[in-house]
Design a protein around this nucleic acid. Sequence first.
DNA 1: ATACTAACAGACCAACCGGTCGGTTGTAAA
DNA 2: TTTACAACCGACCGGTTGGTCTGTTAGTAT
Lengths: 195, 195
Amino acid sequence: MRDAEQTREKILDVSADEIHKHGFTATSLSVILKRCEISKGALYHHFANKMELGYAVFEERYTPLFLSTWLPAVNNEDPIEGLCAFFSEMSVNMSCDELICGCPLNNLCQEMAGVDEGFRLRILDMQLQLNQLISDSLRKIKNQLRNDIDYSQVSYFIVSTFHGSTSLSKSSRNKELFEHVMDELCKYLRNLKHN
Amino acid sequence: MRDAEQTREKILDVSADEIHKHGFTATSLSVILKRCEISKGALYHHFANKMELGYAVFEERYTPLFLSTWLPAVNNEDPIEGLCAFFSEMSVNMSCDELICGCPLNNLCQEMAGVDEGFRLRILDMQLQLNQLISDSLRKIKNQLRNDIDYSQVSYFIVSTFHGSTSLSKSSRNKELFEHVMDELCKYLRNLKHN
DNA sequence: ATACTAACAGACCAACCGGTCGGTTGTAAA
DNA sequence: TTTACAACCGACCGGTTGGTCTGTTAGTAT
């Protein structure tokens, strides 16, 4: 027995990458096996089936990644500027390939939410969590913001725009349109403050 | 020879519906054949392969549908109110199932833009067309709008938000979150006018 | 009536999919 | 040293996929 835990981790790493790049359904187990240099028996020793592997990838890879990506922005003492910096940073630092690949959570949502209830509920939970994070952070600077704001609604709006911009990136294959949308999103965010 | 054109149209209708509901890759030719009550020979008489069938569906079904959906909103004498009415109407009139199914163009973009160049270019063209439509319509009421507006950027922002909201619908399986995002989008739109 | 061809029918195919299962191997406990 | 079992191997399976190919039929032009 080599290191079982290490095998499992490697499967999760490779699977997370493959699913991110090609989607869950299009991800082939045989490709995962080749990249991991393991056999089918090994994979099915660690995971009951492909679906369970997908759930594990979601919970043990995508969820932590997602939270660690958004948390710094939201925890900024000025969440508006935190979010703006986050969006701007993405425009600058993200490679074109990464951008086109899109957000793993959003991709999975588009592909699997309507097909599999297990994925749907996990994704929904993540979206609700993110909404809570953003709306709570905005409420903290309530006194700086306009008084006609529906915090939950604004948070959903922000995330929708962010995720929607990936469509533009995927079809245009460049950062330009994404940058424009992020720029406009920052304008919108700053406009939440009363002038 | 029964009516060949009618056969072709039926194939396109059924395929458009199947692709909309299950995505291009997950759409099975055998299902299309069953629903159309035709043989494989018939289908391959009219289309060279699955990809060409997909392109035909895009061009002859999705594109006209897409344009006829957005045009009335944009052609309103006040495009801002036209778009707001369009978004509100969608919240009210669309069934939950339709909503969850999402926009055919956006679905196809998420699934195929990164995989097939033929789809990507067709989708991109459609997105550029829509952007032109919206930004032109806004420019027409330039004198009513704030003077710091980047029209193309604003148009991309609007469409991104709209498409992004489908993620919320798909995971939550209800209209509520979609309605919130559309409501906030209308707020944003009306805020483009100088107070 | 005959010939020609568009329009279809459906058996067949290789490739691939996720999943199963009997067998092997390495390691740690007894 | 023996035992026990987790960890892993890989041949195999049924099912499905998109696609091909041979053959039939229906309509139309001559």
